[in-house]
Design a protein around this nucleic acid. Structure first.
Lengths: 341, 341
DNA sequence: GTGAAAGCGCTAACAC
DNA sequence: GTGTTAGCGCTTTCAC
């Protein structure tokens, strides 16, 4: 890797402008407290322009002990493009605050993780954002615990964290249904074991909202969060004679499986059954009719995480980010006539 | 951002080990050409361990003029998670070669782009990978042209570039069809104007392969690459009385629209009509039946871009990466009986 | 075998 | 208003 042209340094432009490096430094960093004459300023600026001067940030960083760089450690940046969106949000906030970002992916391997973190620490990063693909309890690497850090989409005890407000999201999912008049034959689709945060909390929000509307869940279809599993489970449910009026799918992939089962059973959305789901992925837009879905605020979360990190007195707690509702055509008032089977 | 504990430096461990910084430096960097006695080595290592020494890479970088950092400039890292996968590949190759990566997103805004690039240059990055979300001709920013650079998923004249081999991909898409015995009523779905590389090249590959198999395309359904447009276009095609035996969709989103139209018209996949597509996104797996799809090798491309960049005498040309076929259940031999309509 | 010292490019006291 | 100078923490030549 041959460095094409040797960059001009401060000394070069100082020489060309006929001033000292100090003066050049002051002019280039735009400091006004040392008052440099307009003429000198002008000469320095011109010299810099002529020599295409770029400050060497490595040198500056070494001198000022300030790297203006933050480390983003992710367990996966590609799965389902949620990771991508979080990184995007972080990146934007970072440049807004004059920071660059060293990004690293651990693939969940602890040794790799430790090595990469050690490397970033050696690069004098100001602090870390530790992001996980799915919202969960995290096992934050010990090496990070002694660094300025904010968790993104996961939590670990008292470490500052930014996560989606899944409980409120659950309430939000129930809202279009109750507003459309649904009070009966409402089902949740997707398993929600106690140790899976999104499932558990979404269901909590849903049942709370339903209860306040004076009704309850009619059933909970426990199946894995995949189209296949949802298809099988819902097909079985319908075959067993259930006549759901509304289905709350715990994510869009489940909703896809549900749509497939519904189509096969000749049950129409939204006329025979209303469907809402979570994640607001592309799927929710593309299916026919589009699915009313509760979105994950990944971009905002990413941005908030770096802002929290950069905040001098950063709040120690968990920050819950609201999950907005995206309404589409999959919800209608309950049908008078039960779906014919 | 308060730096918790001041890090131990080389001088500290030298003092503790009772040696000079020179000796400490040699030991820590594991150089053998200066032969240090085993005892000394041992003492230095122990001191380093006790003080939890981490080399200051900023200082090292300044001294050695070698940042071991590469800049990844992307126009979008979140759309459709292709960007994410390319970055993932780049990241992996980077750490494999002992490099870290500064990642930056431009959102396509030239001023932002220039500023961010200038910043990375100032950080003394070794070189750049310039990645675009969709395979196309690129407008590489002038600031990058004078830097070591490799283009990822785009091309610009003679600048080294890594892109998918779309023409070969087109041939690959036709393969399962011709192998299943298809020779007639084969359609391409999705517009392919001359200035959209993937469309143009995929169609070229398809027609070439078909020609070699002794047949030709029966039609080309020109529609935008979205489920909605594809649905409308295919519905119109069927309404006009066409009886396709095989549909080659230029991407998975088109295939989704096609599936929807087919389902509505009661045309079965793969019995009445075979379908293949491009991109091998999640959709291709999730639809019923799963779609045989030609994948975009994003991970490999990302890795290859970094490797090309790091290659001392990097090849100047465009490197074409093969697009592998993922076979699923959407292809069958042509049906004897025409689909009933 | 080991150490002294120069210097990477920059900032910031401090002097004039 | 401007210049001198001492480092930031590291590598590396050269001397002993």
């Amino acid at each position: 890797m041959s460095r094409p042209k040797p960059r001009a340094k401060l000394a070069d432009i100082a020489a060309r402008a006929g001033v000292s490096v100090t003066t050049a430094s002051f002019v280039m960093s735009g400091r006004t407290d040392m008052r440099i004459s307009t003429g000198t300023t002008e000469r320095v600026l011109r010299a810099a322009r002529e020599l295409d001067y770029r400050p060497n940030l490595t040198a500056r960083s070494l001198r000022t002990q300030d790297s203006r760089t933050i480390g983003l450690v992710a367990d996966s940046i590609a799965t389902g493009h949620h990771g991508g969106t979080m990184i995007q949000g972080s990146l934007h906030a970072a440049v807004r605050h004059g920071r660059r970002m060293l990004v690293v992916e651990t693939a969940g391997e602890p040794e790799v993780e430790d090595a990469l973190i050690a490397d970033l620490v050696s690069w004098q990063v100001e602090g870390f954002v530790y992001a996980t693909e799915s919202h969960d309890e995290a096992r934050v690497p010990p090496a990070l615990r002694e660094q300025p850090i904010v968790l993104l989409n996961c939590r670990d005890g008292a470490i500052p964290a930014v996560v989606p407000d899944e409980v409120a999201g659950g309430r939000t999912a129930a809202l279009p249904l109750t507003e459309a008049g649904h009070r009966a034959r409402i089902y949740v689709v997707g398993e929600a074991p106690d140790d899976v945060v999104p499932g558990r909390d979404r269901v909590r929000g849903i049942t709370a909202a339903l209860q306040e509307a004076g009704t309850t869940l009619d059933g909970h279809v426990e199946c894995a969060w995949s189209p296949e599993a949802a298809y099988d489970a819902l097909t079985a449910l319908l075959a067993a004679g259930a006549q759901p009026a509304a289905l709350i799918c715990l994510n869009d992939r489940i909703a896809l499986g549900v749509y497939q089962a519904l189509a096969e059973a000749d049950v129409g959305v939204p006329n025979d059954v209303s469907v809402v789901s979570f994640d607001d992925s592309d799927l929710a837009r593309w299916l026919r009719p589009g699915i009313t879905s509760v979105a994950l605020p990944h971009f905002e979360m990413g941005a908030l995480a770096v802002e929290t990190l950069l905040d001098e007195d950063r709040r120690p707690g968990v920050q819950l980010v609201p999950m907005p509702l995206r309404e589409r055509g999959s919800v209608a008032p309950p049908s008078r006539t039960r779906p014919a089977r």
